[in-house]
Design a protein around this nucleic acid. Structure first.
Lengths: 224, 224
DNA sequence: TCAAAAGTGTTAAGTTTACACCCATGA
DNA sequence: TCATGGGTGTAAACTTAACACTTTTGA
């Protein structure tokens, strides 16, 4: 009997709010559960923390199990610890959000998990407190995206300024002025114009840009 | 054997970063541990989540055990889940910060716990990852204080504008211009001038103000 | 009478917003 | 040739920052 033994232990889960961007819209990767508990209902992807992994590692693992992706931008949203948040057992859950490039995940795994991209504006009722998690993640991501260059994680390596603007319009859920937007981008030297041209999005073609993380760290001033 | 049983369980702790304001300085209530583990070292106040309480309730309980206070402003900072963050046992800890009026706590309890107010600029090395928790709490509190009227929790119900300014100077760790500060305060109708005068802080006497939460909720525009 | 904190407005600088047209190209 | 998205500058409105002196009173 030592100091810790007198206290109870708990299942600890991680739940993953996975953001993607496509067709000018933010979507979440949600599971239509074909497994217990709560089979048939919608949820976000989750899993239990194991003995041999940190909470952050558990979140990475869970994301990897669904998407096949590694080295993904993730941020912890918080712990959800209400007694009956999971009606099956007492489970304390740590919510994380992830930003992934929607062109770049393992479709087979996603299919196996019966997961689907759902527009952020059309999120269905989710199990447990998952809607609350999603809402909190959305707010956090939005706040973070305005002061840190995390939005690029949702885009291909090369992107047009129209894509970037439409991404930020989706994040903020408001229209932005094209000229003002481009003026601000032009001030950030770490958003670099390449000599490549995108011919998909328009007849005329649009310059492709890239985010240079090293340049950002030299002068980390970001505001969009 | 059900769905959950195959997964491990963990001790879950809550740790409480307790902010106070006195003599123009922010301080934290820290424990010089006279108990195991890590006896003799400094830590923040913590405790284990119990079966019959939510994580948030556990944080409130732990704060109450040290200060005797209830209905205190608290916010969760995040979960700390590294495998060996507590070298004694695997413990996942949820950090919370609390803002209390430093004139208004149970001195006997604090003495019993061997706790002391330590200036935020002179935080000693703390056990485990507690310095990291403190740093994260400090940043979160600072960010929150600039957009939500939470600073008032650190002041008496009645306060002078000089006190309020000096509080925000301590929170931001930078000097503020007196006239600009008062101009901004004047725009917020929920910071109400009372007809009472403080005679302690100056010979001339200064008007005492109060925060009106109901008025704030009617028009919740805050920026200091 | 003087030291110490309270109180009070104006101007310049900087930032943000609003706004409209020409360009290049493929269909 | 025309419809579509790409690309560009300026002026007004607003916000923020800088700044100095008078008042009151207890010691």
């Amino acid at each position: 009997m030592n100091y810790y033994n007198q206290h109870p232990k708990f299942y600890v889960a991680v739940d993953c709010i996975i953001f993607g961007f496509n067709e000018d819209e933010i979507s979440l990767l949600l599971l239509k559960r074909n497994f217990q508990p709560a089979m048939g209902e919608w949820s976000i992807m989750g899993g239990f923390v194991q003995e041999d992994e940190s909470a952050d590692d558990a979140a990475k693992r869970v994301l990897h199990e669904l998407t096949g992706l590694e080295d993904v931008y993730m941020e912890q949203v918080g712990a959800f610890g209400d007694i009956s948040r999971d009606p099956g057992e007492r489970v304390i859950s740590l919510a994380y959000y992830a930003l992934i490039n929607i062109n770049d995940y393992d479709h087979k795994l996603v299919k196996e998990h019966n997961a689907f991209w759902i527009n952020i504006k059309e999120i269905p009722p989710l199990i447990f407190d998952h809607n609350e998690m999603v809402e909190k993640a959305r707010k956090r991501m939005q706040a973070r995206a305005s002061t840190r260059p995390i939005g690029f994680n949702l885009l291909p390596k090369l992107f047009t300024l129209s894509q970037l603007q439409s991404l930020y319009e989706a994040i903020y859920d408001e229209e932005l002025d094209k000229r003002n937007f481009r003026k601000r981008v032009a001030e950030m030297d770490f958003i670099e114009k390449t000599d490549k041209i995108d011919k998909m999005g328009s007849k005329r073609g649009a310059a492709l840009y890239q985010f240079n993380d090293k340049a950002y760290r030299k002068d980390p001033k970001f505001k969009l």
